[in-house]
Amino acid sequence: MNYKPIDLTKTYLITGSAGFIGYYLSKKLLDQGCTVIGIDNVNDYYDVNLKHTRLNQLKPYENFTFIKGDISDKEMVNKLFEEYKPNVVVNLAAQAGVRYSIENPDVYIQSNVIGFYNILEACRHHPVDHLVYASSSSVYGANKKVPFEETDFVDTPVSLYASTKKSNELMAHTYSHLYNIPATGLRFFTVYGPMGRPDMAYFGFTDKYFAGESIKIFNNGDFENDLYRDFTYIDDIVIGIERLIGAPPTDGVPHRVFNIGNNNPEKLMVFIETLETALSNATGRKIEFAKVFEPIKPGDVPATYASTDRLHEAVGFKPQTSIEEGLQKFADWYVEYYDKK
Results as ranks from 00 to 15, higher is better:
Lys59Cys: 14
Asn104Thr: 11
Asn87Tyr: 15
Gln57Lys: 14
Asp70Val: 04
Pro86Tyr: 07
Asp40Phe: 00
Tyr84Arg: 01
Lys85Gln: 15
Tyr61Ile: 00
Asn78Phe: 11
Glu83Val: 09
Val98Arg: 00
Pro86Ala: 09
Ser72Met: 06
Leu80Val: 03
Ser72Lys: 08
Ser72Trp: 08
Tyr84His: 10
Glu83Pro: 00
Phe81Glu: 04
Lys68Tyr: 11
Gly97Asn: 08
Val98Leu: 01
Lys59His: 10
Gln95His: 09
Ile102Asp: 13
Thr53Asp: 13
Gly69Met: 02
Ser72Arg: 08
Phe66Leu: 02
Met76Phe: 12
Lys59Met: 12
Tyr84Met: 07
Leu58Gln: 05
Glu82Met: 08
Glu75Ser: 12
Asn41Gly: 03
Val42Trp: 06
Arg54Asp: 10
Lys79His: 15
Val77Arg: 00
Val98Asp: 00
Phe66Arg: 00
Asp47Phe: 04
Asn43His: 09
Pro60Ala: 05
Asp40Trp: 00
Thr65Asn: 01
Lys68Thr: 10
Leu50Thr: 05
Val48Ala: 03
Arg99Cys: 06
Lys68Arg: 14
Glu103Trp: 04
Ser101Gly: 05
Asn78Asp: 12
Tyr46Pro: 02
Arg99Asn: 14
Asn41Cys: 12
Ser72His: 06
Asn49Val: 01
Phe66Ile: 02
Val89Phe: 13
Asp73Leu: 04
